[in-house]
Amino acid sequence: MSRPPETTEEAGSGTRVGRFARAERWVHRTTAALMGVCVLTAACLYVPQLAELVGRRALVVTLHRWTGVALPVPLLAGLASRALRADLGRLNRFGPHDRRWLRAALRRDRRPGSRPAGKFNAGQKIYAAWVAGATLVMLGTGLMMWFTDLVPLVWRTSATFVHDWLALTLGIVLAGHIGMALADPEARRGMRTGSVGRAWAERQHPLWRD
C-alpha cells in the first residue's frame, strides 16, 4: 500500500520540526494505556457475553477501580515538564481563529486557509477539555460507587447513572479520536517520534510558528 502523497513527500524531504517532547509522549502513552484498561474492564462488567467469557468479576472490578484512580497520575507527574505545561496553556486558549476553524468544520469547508490553527486546532482543544472534565466526573462518581458506606443511597444512585452514561459517551468519543488518528499517519508519527514534516505542519497548523 502506498502512503498518501503528502506523507511520502515529507518523509523524503528530511525537513522535520519538533512537536512533542519526550515527557509529553510518555504522558500520552501511559494515559492511553490506563484509559484502555478502564474501557475494557468496564465492557467486561457491563456486557454479559464478555463477563461470561472473562469471569473473575472481583478481579475485573479491582483492576477497573485502581486504573481509574491512577488515570490522572501521568498528567500530574508530567507537569514537571515545561513543554507539557506550555502545551496545556495553548490548549486552554481559545482565540478568533479557533472560531473560524469551527465554522469551517461545521460547513465542511476544506478550502486552503479556511481552517486556521495554531499548534492545536479548535477541535483538539474542545476534545482535550471535554476528556479532562469527563475523566474528573468519572473519577468522582466512581469513588462514590466504591465507598458505599460513606455516601448516601441517593448519591450512589445518581453517581451510578452519571458514571454509566458518561462512560458510554466517553467510549464513543475515544473511538472517534482513534479513528481520526488512524486517518492521519503524520499526526501519529508526531506523537510516536516527537517530530512532524514541515509541510504537514504548515498545511494543518499554519499559525504554529514555534
Rank of each mutant, 00 (worst) to 15 (best):
M191H: 02
W165K: 05
V173R: 00
L170A: 12
A183Y: 05
P185H: 09
A181H: 05
V196R: 15
G179N: 07
W165R: 09
D184H: 06
D164Q: 01
H177L: 06
G179S: 13
A201W: 09
R192V: 14
R188I: 05
W200R: 11
I172A: 10
A181G: 05
T169M: 08
G194M: 13
A183C: 04
A201P: 08
L168C: 07
L170K: 01
L166Y: 00
R192W: 15
A187P: 03
V196Y: 07
E186T: 14
A187N: 07
V173D: 06
M191G: 09
M180A: 11
A201F: 10
L182P: 06
M191K: 08
G197P: 03
L170T: 06
M180D: 10
A175T: 04
W165H: 10
T193H: 14
A167N: 08
L170G: 07
L174W: 08
A187M: 15
A183F: 04
G190S: 11
H177S: 01
H177P: 01
I172P: 00
A199Y: 03
I172D: 02
L168N: 01
A175M: 08
A199W: 03
R189K: 12
R198F: 13
M180S: 06
E186Q: 15
S195P: 03
W165Q: 02
L168H: 01
M180F: 12
